[in-house]
Amino acid sequence: MTTVGNPGSTTAEYERAPSRFTDRITADGRDGWPAEAGRYRLVVSRACPWASRALVVRRLLGLEDAISLAVVDPLQDERSWRFTLDPDGRDPVLGIAFLGEAYAARDPGHDGGISVPALVDVPSGRLVTNDYAQITLDLATEWTALHREGAPDLYPEPLRDEIDEVAEDVHRNLNNGVYLAGFAKSQRAYERAYRNLFACWDRLSERLSTRRYLVGDTITEADVRLFTTLVRFDAVYHGHFKCNRNKLAEDPVLWAYARDLFQTPGFGDTVDFDHIKRHYYRVHTDINPTQVVPLGPDASGWSAPHHREELGGRPFGDGTPPGPPAAEEVPPRGRAGAPGA
């Protein structure tokens, strides 16, 4: 996640910069990066929906002991993501103050964006990949030898075409659609993004009115990708990005679906509403020049009953839910109902 996508764009439409580093960490190490416990560090911002996908998948698959976690400050400076939440302002494992240092170790000439999620090779300190779309798929399919016992299959082979189709619609019109609306530089570009977003919204609401999950009867990659946008919608996208036809809490189907996932181990326990709101409202000064962060909305509703179990489905299929998160990985603020949420 970067703050402005492609800052060099001269068009009225927001353009998301593509992932620059797309090496893959695989079981056979064919790109030179084998899946090994303890070798890589996942760097995330809890504010970022793209990084949050990796947080959720890592929890669901039980990869916490295999891949260590670094959380950056939700506020950036001119050098982008920084480790000011850690003692002495440095990541205790990588020893760096800015994520950009891992990018420079990979490519000293890199002058593009510094984005999360990022997987960094601990021995060399080099960035391996910032390909947010591929990272979670590889965690699900290439790291299976290190999955916890009872880990779900988030990308089942018989359903991959359908998952990809649904995920592409969600990405184009909702995941990225909120940014197309929020960063639009003309009324026409904004209205186009707004209409596409809510057309997709209505398709999803109809689809989920009769089924608990997007594809099949268990949680898949498609649900992870939708959740990380929905959980930010009322807190940020509805007002800050002008996606205000309706709130998530005003759609009975999607609101219940989002609460169902939020209350599922591995989803809500990765969410930090404080980081989310402070990042968007304080970093996007072109949209919110005062940098005032709203106190609402009330997050306690995320804990309300959802009744989605009446639709059937088995969240983890033949598997089991993950155990509680490690104490040091529980967001300290911004949990549902917590002060400052």
Rank of each mutant, 00 (worst) to 15 (best):
I163Q: 02
E168D: 10
G89R: 07
V271F: 13
V178C: 15
E310P: 01
I96M: 10
L85M: 11
G268H: 14
P265H: 01
Q187H: 10
P252S: 01
A326R: 13
G32Y: 07
R82H: 14
P74C: 08
P152E: 06
F21I: 07
G239H: 05
D260I: 08
Y213F: 15
R245I: 04
V56A: 01
G32D: 09
D121L: 08
S19H: 13
L42P: 00
R53Y: 00
V122I: 15
E329R: 10
Y190T: 02
L63Q: 00
N130L: 02
V330Y: 13
E64T: 00
V116W: 08
F98Q: 10
L208N: 14
N6S: 04
R225K: 13
D88K: 10
H238D: 14
T2G: 15
L146P: 09
V72S: 11
P49T: 12
L137S: 07
L230A: 11
Y155P: 08
G239F: 05
H147Q: 02
L254K: 12
P322F: 00
A341L: 08
A17D: 12
R188Y: 07
F21A: 01
L154I: 02
A222F: 09
T320S: 02
H240P: 04
T2H: 13
R20V: 14
D23G: 14
E162W: 12
G38L: 12
H171Q: 15
R16P: 15
D298C: 07
R59G: 00
V170P: 03
R225T: 06
T141A: 05
P156H: 13
R20G: 03
P315L: 03
G32K: 14
G317I: 10
A118W: 01
V293H: 07
D169H: 11
E250S: 12
L226M: 09
R308S: 06
L174H: 12
F262H: 15
P87A: 12
R195T: 10
W33N: 01
T3R: 14
G301Y: 14
K277A: 05
I135K: 00
G239M: 04
D73K: 07
A27H: 11
D164G: 06
V43G: 10
E165T: 13
S300I: 03
L197C: 08
E309H: 12
R232I: 12
P7Y: 11
S19Q: 02
Y281W: 12
P322H: 01
A70L: 04
D73A: 03
I114Y: 03
S68D: 08
T220S: 12
P92D: 10
Y280C: 06
G239C: 07
I135A: 00
Y14R: 00
T11Y: 07
T320E: 13
A304L: 15
E328P: 08
G312S: 10
G29K: 06
